[in-house]
Write a protein that binds this DNA or RNA. Structure first.
Lengths: 186, 186
DNA sequence: TTATTTATGTCAGTCATGTTGACATATTTT
DNA sequence: AAAATATGTCAACATGACTGACATAAATAA
């Protein structure tokens, strides 16, 4: 290993900066990939830490966050579609959904064409929670993106997209492109 | 919203490509950040899916993966340092560590200077498991990075690093820069 | 119209992985 | 000799997943 071990400047991060040499050996490439693996782990962990704190105020957990988030982004979503996005069982969803409905964060509305469906919407209270949950994450991401140049966001988006398994990409594209902003009225 | 809703080409991902306009409005910026939030969720979920399958062969879970990974990367690590990295309690670690030791994936060695310490090492069997677990992740990351140009890896590294909470960055730097390659002899 | 399928909900039990709190043992440090 | 440290362990509990079975209402097909 060459200079991989040098202690990075605290504001630039490991091996960052314009003077970083492009990779030479296979070993360095592997080392870089391992570092990215670990950074993904640590970044993800901290990324969800702010919502976790807010949620605990309400006696909620991460499962509630996910439901609130995707209902916020997809107002009127069917239960079946939400299950598809979350990739959990209806029993798992049922528990948190019940709590969110009883706490007046989410309301259900009979499907206009198919009355079996229970279309999901955030209440005003639910929207307020969604805003509170998303704020620190948007802030964190915005600050992180300031550290990479303009256009970096697109590269990161492309990379993350291609970390998704090929057979899931189409679905992820559809979901991600729902452009309801958090807190907007449905 | 302007052209955010266009269905992306399946191989380029949402809103990627050289022709993507730089952001104009605050709303578009927020939409982009929300998309990144969701991509991080979906990418992370798929990223750990391959190891999950391998682990289930052994009756293991993600907790075992983390322990194997960080012991692999830090041969001879102290229990206390491992606890620090994982940010879990010793009781949680104890359970999975016990299973890994009983299954002959990890061995403990008395600290040479401080005989209270139990330094952790992978066995040959443990190294084989570590290699199997890391292979699909390294492969997945390598392919994803091919989709962004050269230098993209550095931008992603910088971004992920700055998603880590400021007070954790120093520790993460130290940990990530341990350059033991998975499968190498300690 | 009757039968089947679909969308949703619910009960009951299990598992993995985290938590707190209390306590034990060996070893090092003061 | 006393205190602090490194590790381990027991017990109880919480969260959020799971499987399997069954129930109801509404839409669709035969």
């Amino acid at each position: 290993m060459t200079d991989i071990n040098k202690i990075p400047h605290d504001e630039s991060g490991p091996e960052a900066g314009a003077d970083a040499p492009l990779l030479v050996s296979e070993a360095e490439r592997t080392a870089q990939l391992l570092q990215l693996t670990e950074l993904l782990f640590f970044a993800y962990r901290d990324f969800i830490s702010d919502p976790d704190e807010i949620l605990s105020e309400f006696g909620f957990g991460r499962a509630h966050h996910r439901v609130v988030h995707f209902v916020s982004r997809n107002p009127g979503i069917k239960v079946a579609d939400l299950l598809d996005i979350l990739a959990i069982t209806k029993q798992s969803l049922g528990r948190v959904l019940k709590q969110l409905i009883e706490g007046d964060f989410i309301r259900q509305q009979e499907g206009p064409r198919d009355r079996r469906q229970r279309l999901l919407y955030l209440t005003a209270k639910g929207r307020a929670l969604a805003v509170r949950l998303s704020a620190p994450q948007l802030d964190r991401l915005a600050k992180a993106l300031e550290e990479v140049g303009p256009g970096g966001a697109e590269q990161i988006r492309a990379a993350l997209y291609h970390v998704v398994s090929p057979h899931n990409r189409h679905q992820v594209s559809r979901i991600v492109l729902a452009n309801q902003r958090i807190g907007d009225q449905p």
